[in-house]
Amino acid sequence: MGTNDRRPIAARASGWAAKLSAALAQSSITPNQISVLSIFFAALGAMMLVWSPTVPGLLLCAICVQLRLVCNLLDGMVAMEGGKQTATGALFNEFPDRIADSLLIVGLGYAAFTPWLGWLGALLAALTAYVRIFGGSLGLAQDFRGPMAKQHRMAVLTAACLLAIAERMTLGSDYSLIIGSGVIAAGSLLTCISRTRAIAAQLQAGG
């Protein structure tokens, strides 16, 4: 994967990320293993949403989402900056993301007692990636714009979990979860539209 096809992440410049990725690059751990680990954290978070959407479960889910994102950050840094790129790196860079996204977003729908909304959000989230990669297949730079790119989806999901904890402890209601699920679905649809329009504009302008 070229540098133009990497998602812009500000945390790459942070000291802790550089030190941790350097340590991992010196170990026997591969970038692909880190990518697969992100699925484990996503699955654990999704389990909490589906089977234990209690205050402790929601808190654990929020933590798992952040750990999933840390894996997504470090796999690329270990591969690129750490010099451990592999022939299958591009495959592992994309597929675990789609699985992790789907697990968490579907899980959020079930926690909000609206499974259909979770499945719709997961479908639209996968479609945002499809549009991005399709643009790349046409020779254009991959477009990571929002309003609901991966980091935005995970930020909304984390906020929904934390707000649901506060909401349950104060009001005893669960509106935060269904609102979060709806925001992810609607935002992902808008992201598909914005990325598609950007691709069309570049093609009309000759790339």
Rank of each mutant, 00 (worst) to 15 (best):
Met1Gln: 07
Thr3Gly: 08
Asp5Arg: 04
Arg7Val: 11
Ala10Asn: 10
Ala10Leu: 13
Ala11Gly: 00
Ala11Phe: 04
Trp16Phe: 11
Trp16Asn: 04
Trp16Ser: 10
Ala17Ile: 12
Ala17His: 02
Ala18Phe: 01
Lys19Tyr: 00
Leu20Gln: 06
Ser21Pro: 04
Ser21Asn: 06
Ser21Glu: 04
Ser28Cys: 05
Gln33Tyr: 00
Ser35His: 01
Leu37Asn: 07
Ile39Asp: 09
Ala42Asp: 06
Ala43Pro: 02
Met47Trp: 15
Val50Thr: 06
Gly57Asn: 02
Leu59Ser: 01
Leu59Tyr: 04
Cys61Phe: 10
Ile63Cys: 03
Arg68Ser: 12
Leu69Met: 15
Leu69Ala: 07
Val70Gln: 04
Leu74Val: 10
Val78Lys: 02
Ala79Gly: 08
Ala79Ile: 03
Gly82Leu: 04
Lys84Glu: 07
Thr88Pro: 00
Ala90Gln: 12
Leu91Val: 14
Phe92Cys: 10
Arg98Lys: 10
Arg98Met: 14
Ala100Gln: 05
Asp101Phe: 04
Leu103Glu: 08
Leu104Tyr: 08
Val106Cys: 08
Gly107Leu: 07
Leu108Gly: 04
Gly109Tyr: 11
Phe113Trp: 10
Pro115Phe: 05
Pro115Val: 02
Pro115Asp: 02
Trp116His: 09
Gly118Met: 06
Trp119Leu: 08
Leu123Gly: 14
Leu127Thr: 15
Gly136Phe: 01
Gly139Pro: 12
Leu140Glu: 14
Arg153Leu: 04
Thr158Ala: 09
Thr158Phe: 14
Glu167Val: 06
Met169Phe: 00
Asp174Tyr: 08
Tyr175Lys: 01
Ser176Asn: 00
Ile178Glu: 01
Ile178Gly: 00
Gly180Val: 10
Gly180Ser: 05
Ser181Asn: 05
Val183Ala: 07
Val183Gln: 01
Ala185Val: 12
Gly187Cys: 05
Gly187Glu: 05
Ser188Ala: 15
Cys192Gly: 09
Ala198Leu: 02
Ala200Gly: 13
Ala201Asn: 15
Ala201Gln: 15
Leu203Gly: 14
Ala205Pro: 12
